[in-house]
Simulated assay, not measured.
Amino acid sequence: MRRWWSTLFPLSKPCWFCSTPIRSLPFACIWKQICFTCQEHFMRINGSVCQKCGRPMVEEENPACLDCSQIDSSTFTPNRSVVLYQGQAKKIIQIFKYRGQERLAVPLGRWMAEVCFQYYRSVPFSLITYVPLHENRLKQRGFNQAELLAQVMGRQLRLPVQKLLIRRRETSSQSQRSRKERLQALQHAFILNEEFDSTWLSRQCVLLVDDVYTTGSTLRECVKPLSEIGVKQVYTITFAR
């Protein structure tokens, strides 16, 4: 009786991103587990998007945005993102990555899984992987935010999470670099994890996870070693765009 009553009339619990109490059903989507104030500060990506990078677009525009149309299409894999990288999203990502708030991987990863199901529902994914950190950066931070997001998504989508890539060269923060500087810094920075058989891997459909999409250079460099062994289907997803 008590369980039935709590399902119909759930108790208040804190918003995922602040202390404001809200009422929501246990299996409600993440958006309904966020208070109205936080909702107002997230810019969700809905409607028409660039079919390559996932940037919001008006319906009358071409399938690809201006930036994507100027880059060799052979280097692209489809990307989708949850929100724009501004306001509350930027603040949450910074708290998550640089203040050790690993618990934020749960709402962010679940939200990403919901968007993944929305856009990639018909894609037959066989596994999830993530953008790796260099071992020195991993020691400093204590965790890889992309890996945590991937693990949460794996549980939600019931897919295995594998470390397919190794970051063999450490690079400084990309946020303050130009597109050209990012490309130069990231060239050949990622290699395939030798623990995986390339013949087996070439038959898989891979979902690649990261926290933020800016120019897309990091994700494209991660896709290169997978493409070189013949992996034909690689899709990417990030929390912010």
Rank of each mutant, 00 (worst) to 15 (best):
D72E: 07
S73Y: 11
V115Y: 10
I71W: 14
R80L: 12
N79P: 12
T77W: 08
I71Q: 15
I92T: 03
V82E: 04
F117K: 09
R80W: 11
Y98G: 08
S74P: 14
L104S: 02
I93G: 04
C116E: 04
R80M: 10
Q70T: 06
G87D: 13
V83G: 03
G87V: 02
P107G: 13
R99D: 14
R99W: 12
A113W: 08
Y85E: 02
Q101Y: 08
Q86D: 04
Q70F: 10
R110A: 07
I95T: 13
E114N: 07
L66M: 08
I95G: 13
S73N: 14
Y98I: 00
V106P: 12
R80T: 06
S81V: 00
I93A: 05
Q70V: 06
L66V: 12
C65V: 04
Q94E: 09
S81D: 03
F76W: 11
Q101D: 12
F76N: 02
T75Q: 15
S81T: 02
R110D: 09
I95S: 12
G109S: 07
L104C: 05
A105K: 08
V82D: 06
R103V: 07
Q94V: 04
Q70P: 06
L108T: 00
D72L: 00
A89Y: 01
V106H: 13
M112G: 00
G100L: 09
L104W: 02
S81K: 04
T75F: 15
D67Y: 01
L104N: 03
R103Q: 14
V115P: 07
Q88I: 02
W111I: 00
G109C: 08
P78Q: 05
D72F: 01
E114G: 03
A113D: 09
S81H: 06
F117P: 13
I93Y: 10
W111G: 02
R80C: 13
A105N: 05
G109Q: 10
V82C: 06
V82R: 14
R103F: 11
V83L: 00
G100Q: 06
S73M: 10
A89R: 01
